[in-house]
Amino acid sequence: MIKLHHLNKSRSKRIIWLLEELKIKYEIIPYQRDSLTFLAPVELKSVHPLGKSPVIEDDGLIVAESGAITEYLIDKYADGQFAPKRGSKEYVEYSQWIHFAESSAILPLLLKMFVAKDGCETNFLAGYADLETEKVIRFFDDSLADKRYLVADQLSGADIMMSFIVEIVKRNGEFDKYKNIAAYAQQLATHPAFIQAEHIELKAEA
C-alpha cells in the first residue's frame, strides 16, 4: 500500500486528490506544522533528508517532489488516464505545466509570502516578487481562456499540479482579477475526488 507523508497546509493535498482519482489504496501519515515557526516537524527528516512534504513510499521506493510523485503515480497506476500520449504535442504541453507549477509559478508567490512574513522594507525583492507574480499568474490566466482544462480538454496531472497555484490565488483574494482562473477553479471542484481530497485533508489536520 502507498504511504503518503502529508504535511498540513502544504502541496501534498494535490497528491491526495490524485490518489483519489486513481482509486488505489493508500495510507496518510499526517504531520503538523509548528504553530509559531510554521515549519515542518523534524520527524519528516526520518522519511527524507530534506524533511519536506509530500513524500510517498511505494514498493520500497521513496519518492519526493510533487511533480515527480505525480508523474510516477500516473505512469504506474493511471492506465493511460490523466496524461496525453507520450511523444504527442499535447504531452509536451502537459509536461511544461507539470514543471511550471513548481518552478516559474511558485517562486514569486513564495517570495511574496516570505517578504510579508519578514515585514521588513526591501530595496529590490518585494518589487521583483510583485512583478514576477503578476507576469506568471497573468500568463496562467491567459492560457486558460476558453478552456476547461489546461491540456486536451480533459483532467490531467497538469491540472492537479496547478491546483495548488489556484489555491494561492484564491487565498490572496484575486479571483476577481483573474477571471479565467476563477472559472477554472469551479471546473476543478466539479470532480468528486477533488472534494473528497479536501475532506480528507481537513480530517488529517484535526
Rank of each mutant, 00 (worst) to 15 (best):
Q96C: 05
L107D: 02
D118W: 01
A126L: 02
K52H: 14
K85P: 01
L73T: 02
V92P: 01
K85C: 03
K85W: 01
E121K: 12
K85Y: 00
D79S: 14
Y77N: 11
Y91D: 10
F100V: 01
F100I: 00
V115S: 08
N123S: 13
K89F: 08
C120D: 07
K76M: 06
P54W: 13
P54G: 15
E121L: 06
E132M: 09
L50C: 10
E65W: 04
E57K: 13
I74G: 12
S88P: 00
I62P: 15
M113R: 14
R86V: 02
L111G: 06
V136A: 02
G51T: 02
V115R: 02
K85D: 03
E71D: 11
L109R: 01
P108S: 03
A83N: 08
V115E: 11
Y72K: 03
Y128D: 08
I62Y: 07
E132N: 11
G87R: 05
L125D: 06
L107H: 02
A101N: 09
L109D: 02
K76Y: 08
S66R: 06
F100W: 08
T122D: 04
Y77F: 05
E132K: 08
E132A: 08
Y94D: 15
H99N: 05
V63G: 10
F114M: 10
R86W: 03
F82H: 14
F124L: 09
M113Y: 13
L131V: 11
P84M: 06
Q81G: 14
S104P: 00
L109W: 02
S103A: 04
T122F: 05
T122S: 06
G119E: 07
K135I: 05
Y128M: 11
R86L: 07
N123I: 01
I62G: 08
F114T: 11
D79T: 15
L61V: 06
I56L: 03
D58M: 12
T70M: 04
S88Q: 06
E134F: 03
E71R: 12
L110R: 10
E121V: 11
L109I: 01
G67M: 10
S88T: 09
